[in-house]
């Protein structure tokens, strides 16, 4: 036997690193477990608030209150007017706003592919699905400063009261083709959307996502209406 102690062997750094990793990861896991419920509750609340604020204008018109007050009245207003429903054969979260069983609008969670990754958005639609009442992109991985500007209000506001359905829609092709125009240009037709300079792919991805997803949702809605 040599007089070398364990600390001089090659094994010591490996064992040391393993032990210390286990200790720290363990501490972090315990911490995360402890606050997981709180984080999830907050995420649920933000999500519901987003649904509510997208539907607030329609609810406001029906109940003669300012949208601002409806949003401020969360969670009461959410529980009172908004309900989560499902369309047969559609694997998406659908929310409906109702006042005295009159449908005021729908809100659908849609996903699409952006330049770098998945985009997730909530869209509000009129009860007949013909008009987009608003869009809120809540998860995206686009380039900061360029594509990430799809989250900015000036861009999303273009979709408020946007006619989304074709007048002569056929199965599989119900959604109106939006036309992209340069940023800062004035829209001359209702279907024109200003794209983001330097983010052509992201801008057209949003349009593509809307087209594909709303087509699916509308078809599911029609199926549901026939039932």
């Amino acid at each position: 036997m040599s007089t070398k102690s364990f600390r001089d062997t090659m094994l010591y750094p490996i064992v040391f690193m393993l032990v210390i990793s286990f200790v720290f990861v363990g501490v972090l896991a315990v911490m995360y477990r402890g606050s997981q419920a709180k984080i999830e509750a907050y995420e649920k609340e933000t999500y519901q608030k987003m649904v509510l604020s997208l539907l607030a204008t329609s609810i406001g018109e029906a109940t003669d209150t300012k949208p601002f007050h409806i949003i401020a009245d969360y969670p009461n207003s959410y529980n009172k007017y908004v309900k989560e429903i499902s369309f047969a054969g559609l694997d998406k979260r659908v929310f409906i706003a109702e006042v005295d069983t009159v449908v005021l609008g729908y809100c659908v969670d849609i996903t699409g592919k952006g330049l770098w990754g998945t985009m997730r958005a909530l869209v509000a639609l009129s009860p007949d699905f013909k008009t987009l009442h608003g869009i809120s992109i809540y998860d995206q991985m686009e380039t900061p400063g360029l594509g990430a500007r799809i989250g900015e209000e000036w861009f999303t506001n273009q979709f408020n009261n946007f006619p989304i359905l074709k007048t002569d829609g056929k199965p599989g092709d119900y959604v109106l083709d939006a036309q992209l125009i340069p940023e800062g240009a004035k829209a001359e037709q209702t279907n024109q959307i200003q794209q983001i300079t330097g983010a052509t792919i992201t801008s057209s991805s949003v349009i593509k996502m809307l087209k594909g997803e709303i087509n699916l949702v509308y078809e599911a809605y029609l199926r549901q209406a026939k039932l």
């Binding site: 040391f16 690193m17 210390i20 990793s21 720290f24 990861v25 501490v27 972090l28 911490m31 995360y32 606050s35 709180k38 984080i39 907050y42 933000t46």
Partner: peptide, 23 residues
Amino acid sequence: MVQTLIIAAYVIIVDIFLRAYIP
């Protein structure tokens, strides 16, 4: 390596704390 691990652990604690209490 050990220093980075220790620093990372404390930073993640800060991150979890902020996400849970000051989102």
